[in-house]
């Protein structure tokens, strides 16, 4: 990791659980957030989020795409997390560009410097998705 440690006085959220159905978006967001010092858990469904929250793993922030295809919308997920688990922040995102921006915001508060600009993250996600589109027949 090339980022330099920053001094922060207050205690910082350390574990982020990402909920994002697309594996390429999820992996890119996760690497970005790891790059600024968070421990990141990657989940692809709301069921996975609750599997983790019900385990003994401590999660500080759930970072979720609001437009989920499963039985729970992002908003319902957020409500349920807030009602059933205390001390967990929920960040809802809407689409990839918004998710990249919000990840950038989160990185600003992270223990380490941002690995690169959120715009670069967005660009990277688009490139990965385009490669998949052109190389994997659906």
């Amino acid at each position: 990791m090339s980022a330099k440690p920053k001094q922060k006085s207050r205690s910082l959220p350390s574990t982020v659980m990402i909920l994002e159905p697309d594996v390429l978006v999820r992996a890119s967001l996760a690497e970005y957030l790891r790059g600024c010092g968070f421990k990141v858990i990657e989940g692809q469904s709301s069921e996975e989020v609750f599997r983790v929250l019900d385990s003994d793993i401590k999660v500080d922030i759930v970072f979720a795409e609001a437009r989920l295809a499963g039985d729970l919308t992002g908003l319902e997920l957020a409500k349920r997390v807030r009602a059933q688990y205390s001390g967990i922040d929920v960040i809802l995102t809407s689409g990839i560009a918004n998710a990249a921006d919000r990840a950038g915001d989160l990185c600003e508060e992270g223990p380490l410097e941002k690995p690169f600009h959120p715009q670069e993250l967005l660009k990277r996600i688009h490139i990965l998705k385009e490669r998949r589109r052109t190389s994997l027949p659906s």
Binding site: V23, L24, R26, A27, A30, E42, Q44, E48, L128, K129, R131, R132, S135, L136
Partner: peptide
Amino acid sequence: VLEASNASEALSVFAAGE
């Protein structure tokens, strides 16, 4: 470490050129 939750996601990761 890249993560996939099933084989189809794994194919996506390969297709993306990782």
